[in-house]
Design a protein around this nucleic acid. Structure first.
Lengths: 336, 336
DNA sequence: TAGATTTTCGCACACGTGTGCATCACCATG
DNA sequence: CATGGTGATGCACACGTGTGCGAAAATCTA
């Protein structure tokens, strides 16, 4: 059987109240009995029961995490960042997958609330503005990762997508490219829009105006990048560089270009977004704008803990990506 | 505030006992009051408190999952498989990462036990035989994935690594290769040994005897595969085909071979193990022996639920991998 | 030494749900 | 009408921990 404070109380000849106080280092127990009780607890191998604590104190020491899919390598690192902080602070991680289904996401958040998690972190929410009334009702602090929802109960950590898109495009322009395409994502939502905005802004500053045919859409996955690139290869004049919504899209684009016999980066430059490990699996290795994914998760978790502890916390943190130069971008080919 | 059965009891003019029984569909409550109470509960938006239930009934409806790293794509799919089953049965998933540290793994399992999870699933345990006394003490059912530990309290789901290694090697032999190398993994432990055994077995059956220089070790990641392959390329006579411990190793090997100017598969065939999505990111796409990863997770979860429900369950399930032919293997080059 | 103050501890209840047993009302049987 | 049986419900306690308040004991003050 499990050792409870009652067992300790019996062994020590005191009430369970005294044991409870002694173990929690209460001032009102004499140092001697405190030490004695602690020794007995130790020798009996006592472990406090978190369930009973939760019922009494309303804290489960658990945070809920909602993610669309784990098979997307972007999310796995975010979750790792969260887990690291949670484990270090003695919190457990209750993980659920929404599979990009807003209705499921909503059900999960309610389930987590029912399970009495202390707080919730949602990565890449699909719920948008419908969150607000839900949060109001649940009264559980929630931190959103890479969502652009704002509102009274909404805390968030996000990367600056406009800046990232700007960075990637400026880099291509700096290499001499003037015909720069963008492969977006149908499922990207706001982040897709923002990266596109950064792209437009960089072009505008350079006095460039992209042709509408140079802006196409994938699905944020490899396959979508492939088909998008195939369409792009038929456009004349053909772009000499492509900025992709994310690394998976870029890998797909790269595959399609190489299969079509193009040399990368000599004839076509490709830049991605995310900074995934997977970008180094391909030849040429993918140049990209890296999001600080682990940090995204860490900051979200730390922010949540701050809120839970009642410490002051910013409501929104915006992180900037950084350029990682690898091999898939080069100078624009001489005009032919 | 949260609605409890006491609130319902007050509204219905009965005791909380009756409410509890009515909601649990007890036979001893008259159908009329049962219906009336259910209606009131519904209208008040009652949600049972899982923490209180857990304290009373000793079931938390939560299962603990321990994984080494999420950044390894193999594990993410296993976890997805587990999550799917868990969610479908109303169980929560308490996730922790061990980072391949046996001591941390042990601490996590104890933490999960303290948190009163109903059962635990451990993927790729590093604890080995030290588990046995731990399990004895905890008295919580544990299912191991891809571990080859056996013992009284040990349940497990695993892929047949010997068979997989045999399958891959037979395939290469069938393509006419006779000089077949193996890149193993320093960190692979038993699974590495078993894949190697399958490799040896297939060679033996074909009357082949591999040179010791053809058997080298990576680290189960891309980088290790790269360096191992670089060493392999200096060996004379050079192997015409390489079987790799896993897909990440194979991707590294592929990179090193291509960088060295070799054509794959014309001059060198490469086969991996796992069947990762990532194998399709590279050119040529990786031929591999696929492990049923999602199924591994699903079966582990279902097995655990069976144990928890007291239903009969096998103590060990062994799954066989399947060959996925893509592009990285071809007929052996004519002897030169 | 008597009263005031402080220290130390236990009683009783709370958290939300579940259950063994007693109670009560009602009906049927003799 | 008394007795026994049955069905519906509530009392009291359990699960393990935490806490307000009062009581007893110890210490201090005048």
């Amino acid at each position: 059987m499990r050792v409870t404070i009652k067992d300790i109380a019996r062994a020590a000849g005191v009430s369970h109240t005294t044991v409870s106080r002694a173990l929690r280092d209460s001032e009102e127990i004499s140092p001697e009995t405190r030490a004695r009780i602690r020794a007995i607890a130790e020798s009996l191998g006592y472990r406090p029961n978190p369930v009973a604590r939760a019922l009494q104190g309303r804290r489960t020491q658990t945070i809920g995490v909602v993610v669309t899919r784990l098979s997307d390598p972007f999310h796995t690192e975010v979750v790792q960042g969260i887990e690291r902080v949670a484990q270090a602070h003695g919190y457990g991680l209750l993980l659920s997958l929404s599979h990009e289904d807003p209705e499921k996401e909503r059900a999960i958040v309610e389930m987590l609330a029912a399970k009495q998690v202390d707080g919730i972190i949602v990565a890449a929410s699909r719920l948008g503005s419908r969150y607000l009334p839900l949060l109001e009702a649940l009264r559980i602090p929630i931190v959103l990762i890479n969502s652009h929802q704002t509102g009274p109960y909404v805390y968030s950590v996000a990367t600056d997508n406009v800046h990232g898109g700007y960075l990637a495009t400026r880099y291509l322009i700096g290499l001499g490219h003037r015909a720069i395409a963008y492969i977006g994502s149908r499922r990207g939502g706001r982040s897709n829009q923002d990266r596109y905005r950064g792209y437009r802004q960089a072009l505008r500053e350079a006095g460039l105006n992209p042709r509408p045919e140079w802006v196409v859409k994938g699905d944020g996955r490899v396959e979508g990048g492939e088909t998008a690139m195939r369409r792009l290869l038929e456009v004349r004049p053909r772009p000499t560089a492509v900025f992709c919504y994310n690394d998976l899209t870029a890998i797909g684009a790269l595959k399609a270009a190489l299969r079509a016999g193009l040399r990368v980066p000599e004839e076509l430059s490709i830049i991605g977004f995310d900074g995934l490990e997977e970008g180094t699996y391909v030849i040429p290795a993918l140049t990209t704008v890296a999001q600080p994914r682990q940090q995204l998760g860490r900051l979200a978790a730390e922010m949540l803990l701050e809120i839970l502890d009642g410490r002051p916390s910013p409501k929104r943190i915006l992180l900037q990506g950084t350029l990682i130069e690898r091999e898939s971008c080069g100078p624009a080919p001489a005009a032919g």
